[in-house]
Design a protein around this nucleic acid. Sequence first.
DNA 1: TGAATAGTGTCTATCAGACATTATGTC
DNA 2: GACATAATGTCTGATAGACACTATTCA
Lengths: 294, 294
Amino acid sequence: MADRQGEDDFLAAYDPRAFDPIAVTVDVVALTLRQGVLHVLLVRRGAQPFEGAWALPGGFVRAGRESLDRAAARELAEETGLDEERGLGRVHLEQLGSYGAPDRDPRMHVVSVAYLAFAPDLPEARAGSDAAAAEWVPVASLAPEGNPDPAPPRPMEQDRPAGIHGGGSGRRSAEVLPSDTGTPLAFDHGAILADGLERARSKIEYSPLATAFLGEEFTVTELRSVYEAVWGRTLHAGNFHRKILSVPGFVESTGATAARGGAKGGPRARLYRAGDARLLHPALLRPDREESVR
Amino acid sequence: MADRQGEDDFLAAYDPRAFDPIAVTVDVVALTLRQGVLHVLLVRRGAQPFEGAWALPGGFVRAGRESLDRAAARELAEETGLDEERGLGRVHLEQLGSYGAPDRDPRMHVVSVAYLAFAPDLPEARAGSDAAAAEWVPVASLAPEGNPDPAPPRPMEQDRPAGIHGGGSGRRSAEVLPSDTGTPLAFDHGAILADGLERARSKIEYSPLATAFLGEEFTVTELRSVYEAVWGRTLHAGNFHRKILSVPGFVESTGATAARGGAKGGPRARLYRAGDARLLHPALLRPDREESVR
DNA sequence: TGAATAGTGTCTATCAGACATTATGTC
DNA sequence: GACATAATGTCTGATAGACACTATTCA
């Protein structure tokens, strides 16, 4: 910031319109679980360029008026229908990284600060002011990554009576998924999404943020389904159970049990809430990381 | 990026000077080891604001002409005296995060994309075009963090004949350290530095990048001194030795041994170079992480 | 010769993963 | 009653940390 710039830049700093501008936007990779399947929030662009293409929700940072974090929260709120006080408070939002190739936007040099959000199952998205549509899209329909052992979709809170979980309408995302066409995302949003997914996979290893995908109270099986959906791997139920309960501060028991057992029988699971740990120690490492080491 | 913005913003995108601008800069947290002590590259500001204060090296991104990564490499090269081809090639440079509070620069809204660099011992810094000075400063003189078990400075390559290591003049950083005054850094650079240090401490747990602080060939003891300097902890020499050699792809033997033993005796250490691993598995976790978990 | 250092060996507690088992529900 | 599920127990191999020990080199 203006330390070390040449004389021209120095003057420019006091006459901000005198130099070629760079626009600053925020884009949000918002992830959630719906019926045990990882979804990402996308909007359909209503204007050129990339009109009609799917893109990450985002927009310009309001110069001089908001921080990057607040801009990201604002953009996310506009597409999810949550106000920034209620509802959005339970969404985890963290900075992912910045993307600033000069030609990433055909109009001008745009630096985008990308954010990553973990959300519990939210009501259906609604398009913001000028987007043609907003939709939660299954990540698997977009990212053709080789998931070695894709976890089958798991039933989630529909196994439990309504009311234990937070919000979450039962409405499914569009029957015909918007991106089954395989259309790539606008701009470099495909790369941003890929980075966000990798960050998410890594983040839940070392932090308790997998609970951010769930309601206030959840069962161990529901927590496991988060890991399975994000990692795309099935996990051993028994070992997972023992392991997460042994991590100090990850989850704490509420003392209550689910109102009923599984859909096809079984005992009623105990309910937990997120603990006070900010880091998991020991961590829950993804199985078979050796493959991606080199 | 321009998906979802209102009509005003949309038009503004085609007339870039029509809206309040946000300047984009890059700032670099460049770390190196000198005589076994972690140093950060700082410049003394030659102009207002914060004239005379120490700051991270950085400057404006050239709109439409360079990516963020290239801007960071350029700024780093200007202060280190390395050209971007030779020398800088052995420096690890990664994005750290972006800082965009509206009031972080008193002149205007400036979004800074911070980078983190790991460098082998480099020649003395030289001030760039308009900075009053550039200096490698011991991190400990700036960051009053409670290091529970500060590792004593270790002799490094001066124990070995010149020529085995890469560059690195023997000149010491200023006898009177520039920031012994305890002056805080300009802007929010103190916070950026703190984030960079934490990233560095975490990074060497899971990646082999500790080797980026060393020359092409190094001994296990030198590698250990990197961990001790970055973590601020002494490590058990024997366990460290066995552990890093057991991590596949971390280091590979050159077959050679150091020309002479330690300064005060001892056998000649075997020499290693960086291996082909991109991730350490298993990781080298910092001891006693439990304290910082909550 | 003394001391410091490189490198290896040993022991123990802990942990991950595979698998088994019991209890408890639903259909 | 059949079956699925929650939760716990058992076993084994791998690993981290503490510590001991030997060999090698310099002052």
